[in-house]
Nucleic acid binder design. Structure first.
Lengths: 210, 210
DNA sequence: TGTTTCAGTCAACACGTGTGCACTGAAAGT
DNA sequence: ACTTTCAGTGCACACGTGTTGACTGAAACA
């Protein structure tokens, strides 16, 4: 038997999942109606208000969830990266699996990044910024980046996050294709990241041409 | 006096501009109604159909316009880059000015990238891919990249385009702030691009660690 | 046991939506 | 001058929308 609070949290999650499901089916979050979400969650429209003021508030809660998920991903990646060689490749593989396992969330992410309300964009930007800072912190621990100054490291991390995030939509678009395509995606990302990483190092020890 | 065809093209442009204006005012393209666009263009709703089948077709035409604009930008950048030193900085400055001068278009771009219909995303992806290829072609002409192989050059160009594009939304969000913020934005992008460029070069002449 | 709290229901509203159809009037073609 | 073309109009329809207020009944509490 479930307590009253449990039941409430249950339909709350049902509402959020309903929204994510609609997004995954191809709808744009900003044009999904409250009623549609309620219907998809098996609840009457007016019940929506017991949980969220409006769709934006629901969206903000999804962003929060994404924040938690990203932290879990980082933790997994760190454990996975204990063995030094091929850290980038293994982290990237982990990320791709993660995206594929949470398509709805990442479709939502890609939509909100450029098309969400100001509050939603702001919230998402904060999460991604935090993610980049964590990444910069991890890079700092590697001996190869000992000579790289702090702001450069930060810039490099943000650059990587930006570019990888930007291509996430491509991953989602070809998610139903063969595993080879996914491997190619990973390989290209790894190569590109290596450009940035060696570039920051090279520039740190001998700053010459631009 | 305007001919009949001229008048048609005129209201056609009015419809597209109306959509872009609404986007610039904060609305999401995918949730803008045909009626709203028509009203904003000073035309009755049913008149919309004389020009576009639906909002998606209007969007596709905007993407086409963006393609043309990007080609113009590239041409300007090449002329501007005749003098070798500081090419990246000057190109980046040009791009930022360009974005600021066409806010509506770039808001639309950012929205469609992750939240457009499949056809819209596809069209936009093609334009950006073309842009990246042009950029790769420009890089190839520089003596510093003589030793870099073709696929690496392509990857580097795409990486830069991805990351810069991803941060465009940040530019748009702080477009009303001081010029200093804009300069900081440019400086950071230039630094990040230099990471990638020197990275590709370094990796081309001596491929060692990852 | 009796009372309160409150997630979910039901009915109703005023409004914006996409789209069909018949119409108008001026430019274009004869 | 007479006819055709067709961008733009006006009206109408069926439908989905957000939000309201009063209601229900089971869990939580006294």
């Amino acid at each position: 038997m479930l307590s009253r609070e449990d039941k409430k949290n249950q339909t709350r999650k049902a509402l959020m999942n309903a929204a994510l499901q609609l997004v995954e089916q191809g709808q744009n979050f900003s044009s999904i109606s409250l009623r549609e979400v309620a219907k998809n969650a098996g609840v009457v429209p007016t019940s929506f208000y017991r949980h969220f003021r409006d769709m934006e508030e629901l969206g903000l809660n999804i962003v929060d969830d994404i924040g938690l998920m990203l932290r879990k991903l980082l933790r997994a990646a760190r454990q996975n990266a204990a063995a030094q060689p091929g850290v980038v490749l293994r982290s990237m593989t982990l990320l791709v699996e993660f995206v594929c396992a949470h398509r709805g969330y990442f479709w939502f992410l890609c939509q909100v990044k450029g098309g969400g309300t100001p509050a939603l964009r702001r919230a998402l930007r904060n999460e991604l910024q935090h993610f980049a800072q964590e990444l910069a912190g991890d890079l700092r621990l590697m001996p190869a980046f000992a000579q790289v100054n702090s702001t450069d490291l930060d810039l490099a991390a943000r650059f990587i996050v930006s570019a990888v995030f930007d291509t996430t939509i491509d991953l989602l678009d070809q998610i139903d294709s063969l595993a080879e395509a996914r491997d190619l995606y990973i390989a290209q990302r790894v190569r590109q990241i290596s450009f940035v990483l060696t570039g920051t190092q090279t520039l740190a020890q001998g700053p010459n041409k631009a």
